[in-house]
């Protein structure tokens, strides 16, 4: 519970920091990359393809483990449980992306640059999963957060991030 409260405080602080510094741009306007700070809607086919590709890429290590006998959650639970939970998993993944890569990352990018934004949001992404999965999941979530942040930067699309995230979630649980 303490970890949960700490994370909630962390998230509120990060959002407040981004908002508070929004009017004090440190990156000169000429050097800004509007593409990274604006949400592209509807997403282009290229953006969706990149999201799809990242989702599949994130599954490969788990697939390798599964091929070597590592037990998967989905195999234990069965198709019905998976089907029942899949919409919820997709919704949660999309919500996280809206919040982190849709709101927080462009705001931080505007004031502190793209690199800081990607790393800070990836750190928040990793920290927010500690209450649910423990500190042992932190390195993996940090790496994944960086990758999804890069997709957001390159495509300007939150939908591609949500696609990558949802595919990785669902696939890791069942396929890999």
């Amino acid at each position: 519970m303490a970890a949960g409260v700490a994370f909630a405080g962390c998230l509120v602080a990060a959002a407040w920091w981004g908002r508070a510094t929004a009017d004090r741009p440190r990156v000169p306007p000429a050097q800004r990359k509007p593409h990274s700070q604006q949400t592209q809607w509807p997403p282009s086919a290229g953006a969706l393809a990149l999201g799809l590709g990242l989702g599949v890429l994130l599954l490969l290590p788990g697939a390798w483990l599964a091929l070597h006998g590592y037990p998967t959650e989905g195999a234990r639970a069965g198709v019905l449980t998976f089907t029942a939970w899949a919409p919820a998993i997709t919704f949660v993944a999309s919500s996280e992306e809206v919040l982190l890569r849709g709101v927080l990352q462009p705001r931080l990018a505007r004031t502190h640059g793209d690199l800081t934004a990607i790393l800070a949001v990836a750190a928040v992404f990793a920290l927010m999963h500690i209450p649910l999965y423990g500190a042992v999941a932190l390195p993996l979530d940090l790496g994944t957060g960086i990758l999804i942040g890069v997709v957001r930067l390159r495509t300007g699309s939150v939908a591609s991030c949500a696609l990558a995230h949802a595919i990785a979630d669902l696939g890791e649980w069942w396929v890999a």
Binding site: E73, I89, H129, V136, H165, A176
Partner: peptide, 10 residues
């Protein structure tokens, strides 16, 4: 360790 991310905990 738990894989990504938002998989359910049975």
């Amino acid at each position: 360790a738990p894989p990504l991310y938002d998989s359910i905990t049975l």
